[in-house]
């Protein structure tokens, strides 16, 4: 059993990680030499002169992949309390999870059959 104060170590680690990133970014910005010329500040796009800006609508396929990822992400979340209690729940718990993942497997087969993950 853990209490919320046990999570303080996690918070400290979080702060160290974020602090390292921020310190490195600020330090490189301050220490590094800067020679700003028009050519260097140009947006690099494989040597081709860039046209317009980055704000163009992009393919719905990225969104589909992301939304399918969310489903399986939530599925994995349900596995966490199950895995913690795996021994106590025993065979019945295993069957319950099998039914749950079986239904999601049906969905996955549907996605594969429909070719939703294919990138034409």
């Amino acid at each position: 059993m853990s209490t919320s104060i046990d999570y303080l170590a996690l918070a400290v680690q979080f702060m160290v990680a974020a602090g390292f990133v921020v310190t490195t970014m600020v330090a490189t910005h301050l220490i590094g030499p800067k020679r700003k010329t028009a050519d260097k500040l140009e947006n690099f796009e494989c040597g081709i002169e860039s046209k317009g800006n980055a704000r163009i609508p992009f393919s719905i396929k990225y969104f589909l992949i992301a939304i399918l990822f969310v489903m399986f992400d939530v599925e994995v979340i349900f596995m966490y309390p199950w895995a913690v209690n795996f021994r106590e729940l025993g065979q019945i718990g295993f069957m319950e999870m099998l039914f749950f993942t079986g239904t999601l497997l049906l969905g996955f087969l549907y996605i594969l059959k429909k070719g939703a993950l294919k990138w034409h």
Binding site: L64, I67, L68, M71, V74, E75, T103, L104, L106, G107, F108, Y110, I111, K114, A116
Partner: peptide, 11 residues
Amino acid sequence: VLFLSAMIGSV
């Protein structure tokens, strides 16, 4: 079942 229907719907 909700996840299944959400998957089918999004596809």
